[in-house]
Design a protein around this nucleic acid. Structure first.
Lengths: 160, 160
DNA sequence: TCAAATAGATATGAGATATAATTATTGTTA
DNA sequence: TAACAATAATTATATCTCATATCTATTTGA
C-alpha cells in the first residue's frame, strides 16, 4: 500500500536528474545508507530491536561492565538519551545495571543471559542483512569500501 | 567548549571496543557519514543553507520547472514537509513558484537569478568539503567507493 | 571540611519525519 | 454533461530523534 502510493506520487520520477548532487560522495553515501537503514530496521524488527538498541547490546557485549557514560560515548549519543534506552533494555531483562562498590554513582552494564542470546540471534540476522547489501561487490572492492569509509571517518577534525 | 565536553565525558573512551559492529558495512558507513554531515553542515552554514535546502536548490537547478511532488520524490521526503522548505526558499527569493497555465493545481519551480548565484557559490564550497573528505584516497579507490555505494543503493528492494 | 567534578536521571525544547485530512483543480465516465 | 475519482498543494498534527539545562547523589581534591 505504501509502495503503491510512493510509485503513484512520482509519475515521471525517473526523468528527474540529480546530476549536481551525484558529484558528491556524501550524497551517494546518504542514498546508500538509506537503503541499508531501511533493510536493517526490517531485519531487527522481529527481535524487537532498533538500530540503536541493537548497537547498545553489541557494545555492552564487547565491553562488559562499562558505564552508561562510556556507552553513550561509544554510541555517539547524549547521556540523557541513553538513559531511556538502558531503561528499555533493562526492563526487558537484556542488560543489568550492576552497582559498583568502589563508586556508587556509576553502573556497570552487563548483558543478561537472555540479552546475550538475543544479541547472538540478532547478529546472525544482521549478517544476513550485510550479505544482501554487499551482494555483487567483490571481496577486494568490499575491502576498499571499508577502508575508504574508515579513512573518511578518521578525517574528522572534531571541531564544533 | 563542546569539544572539551565531549573529550571530558569519555575518560577512557579509547578503551571501548566496537569490534562486533565494525564487522558491518552499515556501521562503518554511519560513522563516516556522521563526519561528512557535520562538515557539510559547517560548510553550508555561511550561506544560510542546510543539507536539505542546498539539495533542493541543486535539484531545482538541474530540473527547472519541476513540481513540488517531483522535488519531494527526488529528495526522498514527504510532500507536506517540502512545503515549508519551498516556503523558505521562496521567501528568500531563491526559487519561484510559477503557475502552470495548463494545470493550475501545480507549480513549476525555478531558481531565481539570486538562487542560481547562491547555488553556484555553495556548490563551490561543497566541492571544498568533498576534497577535505576524500583527502588521502586515491582516484581509483574513490571510483570504487562510489561504485560500491551506488551498488548498495541499487540493491534496494523498496518493499515496505 | 568544603568546593568542584562526575554519573545518572529528569524535564524540556527544537528539529525532523510521517500521516490524515482539506481545498482547489483536473480527469474520467456513466 | 453531471458526478465521481484522482491529483497537487497545503494544513494540522502526532511522533521520534536529538540536544541542553538542571537536579540529586556521590566522589575527588584543594
Amino acid at each position: 500500500m505504501a509502495r503503491d502510493a510512493a510509485v503513484k506520487t512520482a509519475p515521471p520520477a525517473s526523468a528527474i536528474s540529480d546530476a549536481t548532487l551525484r558529484e558528491f560522495t556524501g550524497y551517494n553515501m546518504k542514498r546508500a545508507f538509506m537503503v541499508i537503514q531501511a533493510d536493517v530496521t526490517r531485519t531487527l524488527e522481529p527481535f524487537g530491536l532498533r538500530m540503536v538498541t541493537y548497537s547498545a547490546l553489541a557494545i555492552v557485549g564487547d565491553n562488559p561492565g562499562l558505564s552508561q557514560t562510556q556507552l553513550a560515548a561509544a554510541l555517539a549519543i547524549e547521556r540523557p538519551n541513553l538513559v531511556v534506552i538502558v531503561d528499555e533494555l533493562e526492563g526487558r531483562d537484556l542488560v543489568n545495571r550492576d552497582r559498583v562498590p568502589t563508586d556508587r554513582r556509576t553502573y556497570a552494564l552487563r548483558l543478561t543471559t537472555e540479552g546475550a542470546r538475543l544479541l547472538a540471534r540478532a547478529t546472525e540476522a544482521v549478517r544476513g542483512h550485510e550479505a544482501r547489501m554487499i551482494k555483487g561487490i567483490g571481496k577486494a572492492d568490499e575491502a576498499t569500501l571499508i577502508a575508504c569509509l574508515n579513512q573518511i571517518e578518521a578525517s574528522d577534525t572534531g571541531r564544533s
